[in-house]
Amino acid sequence: MTRRRSTPLTIAMLAALAYFLLPLFWLVVASTKSTEDLFTTFGLWFSDSPRLFTNIYGTLTHDGGIFAHWMLNTVVYAVVSALGAALLAAAAGYGFAKFRFRGHSAAFNAVLGAIMVPTTALAIPTYLLFAQVGLVNTPWAVILPSLVSPFGFYLMRVYAQDAVPDSILEAARLDGASEVRIFFRIVMRLLAPGLVTVVLFTLVATWNNYLLPLIMLNDPSLYPVTVGLASWGSQAVGGGSGANSDMLALLLTGSTLSVVPLVVAFLLLQRYWQSGLATGGVKG
């Protein structure tokens, strides 16, 4: 089937695309420049002496390689949180979708109401509580709060309702399969597309989280890359001075490096999150 295409609409959409990609293009260009070139050459094009690899080397070796440390922390925090949150949400979503139990609807409504409680308004109370039990300034302070995703739970419940047919569950029970076995062998497989969505979105939320690690951690070797870059940002104000004169180039190169993994993950997994998002949007 041939479809009619509209040139004016295409041009308008390409203009919109330019707005969304231009800042990232600027960032990539900036990470090929020395701090001096950043101030003396036009921002949206390369300078005569591109030095991307010098900058990457500088970023990775600055302060004893702390940047690589931050990236590693971010990966650990984000992956543990995302997998944990998805597993918890899947089990609970399945439990709520396919079973009725005491306090079923009360618990469901409580969690649903929690979707509206903003995580940052919760961050300070969580900090106050964690300070009491000595969890502050440990990786757990960042991971534990990220494990509970009310929206992920809601998404998994809606998804499990349709994706897990009762007949399959009954057949498996008649075959004598235990409930745990049914969940891990059958249900998890059926929930996979929804799970990928929850994993991906918790991953992004944790990867990009700033306020929570900012208040929870004060040891720089525990920082995720967002808090680390923000701390470089304060040193780079006005281009830095003295020992920090190269800080701006490092900050911008580090920013580019920190963006690459997530963008690649989204492009590779687009089939999953696009279909998974439909679940939340269509039935919300």
Binding site: L9, L17, L24, A230, S258, V259, L267
Partner: peptide, 27 residues
Amino acid sequence: GLVRLARVVRLGIFVPYAVPSVVASLM
């Protein structure tokens, strides 16, 4: 269905979501 390169445009507009707000604000 009237836009050419729709897939590229769609992904391109979505990409900023994968950028941490810290990096977006600095940038």
